[in-house]
Design a protein around this nucleic acid. Structure first.
Lengths: 343, 343
DNA sequence: ACTTGGCACTCGCTGACCATGAGTGCCAGC
DNA sequence: GCTGGCACTCATGGTCAGCGAGTGCCAAGT
């Protein structure tokens, strides 16, 4: 049956509404899309679409607006990811090339994403939990304080300062410290962070009882650094784009801003996206499990180095969003930042 | 003359308007403050205040609202910083005590400030340019790559990875590296960052010509890390508080959000505050040099360790703000975070 | 069986109009 | 110099009518 034309009508409604942000009626629709039928036919189709819960009318006598389900159908079956021009791709690559270190890469990525999509961009720092230990350094700071520095293969560095039970400024103390440094590195380097924590636990047994306090203190602080959840950091950009789209949020942007401040929430959003393959994930309106984000959509994906996918990035905006181009931007940025990180 | 009473009227207007966010008229004013005079007298005073540009009427027949100049006079002469209860002080101290490292201190500080003031909080990272070098570590990563780690006395760590011109995996290479490490530290440790950069420049001269390439590479990356402006980082919290006070912004909160994303702007705001003594600085409305912040006020101060003041913190909100309590919170938080950092 | 033109109907939006009331400015008297 | 009184100004909120975009449905056409 005309099932196919009805979907074409839905597609047209979504496209028009995204562009004009006004409810679209049967007549306006005919002006902009030359479906080969009359207004009355479109009206009938619309009635069916409404019954199926794909579109809704704000008031009796206004045009129709897509529902979350309508957008869902649109992204799943009625749209394809819009290809980017090679000029755009080149611009992305060039902008990311200039980064000097990991912080800078992440910073540029998030800014770029916000600019491209004109929406709020969210980038997760490459997650330590999937990364491995590259080196551990012990730096004495005065007689009884020690800085423990953990260097991860993604380039991130974690440090802790601890009080040591022994005086390290003696030659004897220095020798001990050298031994501890060597053994800690021998056990941990190359291990994934979680495994490293495990293989360090029994380290104290290898030392003289008099030195175990020191070893335990070092291992303890490493444990701390290894599991510390702060590594799961996210960075935001483009928050002001929310104000531009202010009218799209039924209440106000307050709840959205609140959600954006709760980085745990954002991490979960990016995290659950990861269940899917390496495709771009889209979560629309009420599909978001968090109150306050129920009138927003999240377009996200993974990025990282090779087989070792390490983090997520994405954008957040009103459900009334240009999904095809947003998805294209997210995918392109993820691709290029991954490429940069692989070096 | 009744100059004094007129100021009392101004004070009352500011207080009422801050609380109710509605223009305050002569009658409403008498209900809430028992000035010993009649409404007509207050009206006369108001007329004078308006002529002096301290208050203004949104429309002919509405109450009066303080102007930026009115707020200025209020904070300068009509209010005192509200003292905090010892319970509040204790709560602040307790919350900040729990921090595990510098990042955590800054993070807790900014959150605390946002919660206390119910406004947008801005905290600058302790600035490296005023800090000194505590230690420099050189960590080989494979044969021809070297990680240069700079540890600053504020606890911050900067790292760079460089390609080395020499193979460092040989015993010979390791010896050279040890020598470089020792000399670099000898020259730089304890120096202020800017001075350290200067005293390192001639270091290559002390080495064999065959080793100078390596030394130059190390020094170059340190130079880079020492002057890198990213150290001048700021952290935000409480952005969602802007939405709550939405009605206070004539246009929309868009421009404000934009300004908040430009960290350079925020740094300048905190930076210029520093010209004043160690008091709390207040910049009201149009006193802010940045378009987009002209309907906001910034309350800021310095914090840091002892004589070595290293950074600024503050809050940003609508000009209609409870200045006395906000100033008290800012001052208290600065005091306590400084105390924590001094350890 | 589907499409189409037509027609009555709904309902949000806009602008006009009015009553209300908070608030002002001014003046004459104390 | 303060006060009570009074006329005046406007923003606000409510009602009401007209407009128009848009719908739903029906009867006729293909």
């Amino acid at each position: 049956m005309s099932d196919e034309r009805r979907l074409a009508v839905l597609r047209a409604i979504v496209q028009d509404y995204v562009q004009t942000s006004e409810p679209v009626g049967s007549k306006a629709l005919l002006d902009r899309h030359h479906l080969g039928v009359s207004a009355a036919t479109v009206r009938n189709d619309m009635a069916v679409l409404e019954e199926e819960g794909l579109i809704a009318a704000p008031h009796t006598s206004a045009g129709r607006v897509p529902t979350d389900a309508g957008y869902r159908l649109f992204v799943d079956r009625l749209s394809s990811v819009k290809p980017m021009s090679s000029a755009e791709r080149a611009a992305i690559a060039r902008f990311l090339e200039g980064a000097v270190d990991l912080d800078d890469v992440v910073d540029r990525t998030v800014r770029l994403l916000a600019t491209l999509t004109r929406q709020v961009a969210v980038v997760q720092y490459p997650s330590l939990t999937r990364s491995s230990v590259r080196h551990i350094e012990l730096v004495p700071m005065g007689a009884t304080r020690l800085m423990v520095v953990l260097i991860v293969n993604t380039g991130r560095v974690e440090q802790r300062v601890i009080e040591t039970p022994r005086d390290l400024s003696t030659t004897d103390g220095e020798a001990t410290l050298g031994l501890v440094r060597a053994k800690v590195n021998a056990r941990a380097v190359g291990e994934r962070l979680i495994d490293a924590a495990a293989s360090l636990t029994s380290l104290a047994d290898e030392f003289d009882p008099s030195e175990r306090d020191l070893v335990r203190a070092v291992v303890g602080s490493l444990d701390d650094a290894l599991v510390e959840e702060r590594e799961e950091r996210v960075v935001l950009a483009g928050t002001s784009n929310l104000a531009r789209a202010g009218a799209d949020f039924p209440l106000s942007i307050g709840p959205v801003l609140e959600a954006l401040e709760q980085h745990v929430v954002l991490l979960k959003l990016l995290g659950t996206a990861r269940e899917n393959a390496d495709a771009v994930s889209v979560r629309i309106g009420h599909e978001n499990p968090y109150a306050g984000l129920q009138s927003t959509s999240v377009v996200s994906t993974e990025y990282g180095t090779g087989a070792d996918l390490v983090a997520g990035l994405g954008v957040l905006g009103p459900t009334r969003m240009d999904y095809p181009t947003t998805m294209a931007s997210v995918r392109a940025v993820a691709t290029y930042v991954s490429r940069i990180l692989a070096q």
